[in-house]
Amino acid sequence: MKIQRKGGESMATTNTKVVRLSFATEGGKTFSITIPTPREDLNQAEVLAVMNTIVSSNVFLTTSGALTGIRDIKVIGTVTDDLFDPPQA
Rank of each mutant, 00 (worst) to 15 (best):
F31Q: 01
E26I: 04
G7Y: 05
P86K: 07
L67W: 05
S57K: 10
S10L: 07
K17R: 14
E9W: 05
I70T: 07
V79P: 02
I3R: 12
G8D: 09
E40N: 08
L67Q: 10
T80A: 14
D41F: 03
F23T: 02
V47M: 13
V79C: 04
N52P: 06
V79D: 01
P86N: 08
G28E: 00
T16S: 13
L61S: 15
T62Y: 03
R39D: 03
N52V: 03
T34E: 07
T78L: 05
P86G: 13
E9Y: 08
M51Y: 02
F60Y: 14
M51Q: 02
G65D: 04
F31S: 06
R20D: 13
L83D: 07
A12R: 14
D41P: 06
P38E: 01
K17E: 11
V79K: 13
R20Q: 15
G7D: 05
D85M: 05
T14A: 11
R5L: 05
T30H: 10
D72A: 10
A12T: 13
T34P: 09
R5Q: 13
D81N: 12
A24K: 02
V55W: 01
A89G: 15
G77P: 03
N15P: 01
K17Y: 11
L21H: 13
T30V: 08
T63F: 04
G69F: 00
T78P: 06
F60D: 06
T53H: 10
K29D: 08
S56N: 15
V55C: 05
L61W: 09
E9R: 13
K74W: 04
T80H: 14
I35Q: 10
G7P: 02
R5W: 06
V79M: 04
A66F: 03
K6P: 12
V18Q: 07
I33P: 12
K17V: 02
S32L: 03
M51L: 01
T62G: 09
A66M: 01
L83G: 11
D81Y: 08
T53L: 08
G7F: 03
F60A: 14
G7C: 01
I35H: 14
T34R: 10
I76F: 08
I76V: 08
I76H: 12
A49S: 11
E9S: 12
T78K: 15
N43T: 01
D82G: 14
E46T: 03
P86S: 10
R5F: 09
P38N: 03
F31V: 01
G65V: 03
N58H: 12
I33G: 14
V18P: 06
P36L: 00
T34I: 05
I3T: 13
V19R: 10
G69L: 00
T30Q: 07
V19N: 05
S57T: 10
G69V: 00
G7L: 01
S64E: 00
P87L: 01
T80I: 03
S56L: 04
V79I: 00
E9D: 11
D82M: 06
T14M: 06
D72S: 08
V55P: 06
S32H: 13
A45G: 09
I33N: 15
E26N: 11
A89F: 02
T53W: 06
V18F: 07
I3L: 09
V59R: 15
A49W: 05
N15F: 09
G69D: 00
